[in-house]
């Protein structure tokens, strides 16, 4: 189910503004890939181009190639809606649907596929997804209550449950812990460890310790200068990036000398 992603010569634009330039990388299946780098260097932009969420913004476009398991993501006739059903996303701020119960939030994506679900089938999906997101024990007695009534960390795990309920091939996470307290953060990090046996996970993080803890491979993005596009400086196994990076700028960033 999990798939690898090949990116070659990717340029990402907002209208005429080139935000990210010339990215090449291969993201392995069933692994955790982390992106680090200073603010504004295009980590979110790049992540969102991986499931075609980028083009939701008016004028936003992409040049280059992204191939998921042999299929060109931006090829002719590829429906962005179908892409997003296969490549799930978790955002920086937890965003459960405010008018929906916990139960309905988990099923939101499944219901989009429009086929009628039996109650027993729906119950199974909800339980499996909430267990997968390590949230089942905390909410199983109040599935009918609104998702907004949960704590921030629980809401974020609810969003993860919602994303994995449709059994995507890849899970993208954009700073999923940056709005959370340390305990919730560690719950989500544990979860990422468990999820990688089934999914290809790509995570953007501001927190270098987090990248070191959860990821197998790390990409360091940086700006060439003010007003210049962001680019991928280094992409290596996480251990190497943190112990013995190829690039001086990576070392400077990791040792806290800038950024």
């Amino acid at each position: 189910m999990a798939k690898s992603i090949d990116v070659s010569d990717l340029d990402i634009y907002y209208g005429d503004f080139l935000a990210v330039q010339g990215v090449n990388m291969t993201i392995r299946a069933r692994s955790v890939t982390a992106f680090i780098g200073p603010s504004g260097c295009g980590k979110s932009t790049y992540l969102r181009s991986l499931n075609r969420m980028h083009e939701v913004i008016p004028g936003a476009r992409v040049e280059g190639k992204i191939v998921v398991d042999g299929q060109d993501l931006y090829g002719n006739g590829v429906d962005p809606v179908a892409v997003r059903r296969q490549i799930g996303m978790v955002f920086q701020r937890p965003n459960p649907f405010p008018t929906m119960s916990i139960y309905d939030n988990v099923l939101a994506g499944n219901r989009l596929n429009a086929k009628k679900m039996k109650k027993s089938e729906a119950d199974t999906i909800v339980e499996r997804s909430l267990k997968g997101a390590n949230l089942w024990g905390e909410v199983k007695d109040r599935l009918g209550k609104p998702g907004m009534g949960l704590s921030g960390g629980q809401q974020q795990r609810l969003c993860i449950a919602r994303a994995i309920a449709v059994e995507p091939e890849v899970l993208l996470m954009d700073e999923p812990c940056s709005a959370l307290d340390p305990i919730s953060t560690s719950a989500i990090e544990d979860l990422i460890h468990e999820l990688k046996s089934q999914y290809t996970i790509v995570i953007v993080t501001h927190n270098m310790q987090q990248a070191a803890r959860v990821s197998d491979e790390t990409g360091f993005f940086n700006l060439k200068g003010a007003g210049q596009p962001g680019h991928l400086v280094e992409f290596n196994p996480t251990e190497k990036v943190f112990a013995n990076p190829d690039n001086e700028a990576t070392e400077a960033y990791i040792s806290g000398r800038f950024g």
């Binding site: 969420m53 939701v56 997003r84 059903r85 296969q86 799930g88 996303m89 955002f91 989009l112 994303a163």
Partner: peptide, 11 residues
């Protein structure tokens, strides 16, 4: 936030 939540689910 909520629009993107829906779109990212493949709406």
């Amino acid at each position: 936030l909520h629009e993107e939540a829906a779109l990212a689910l493949g709406a």
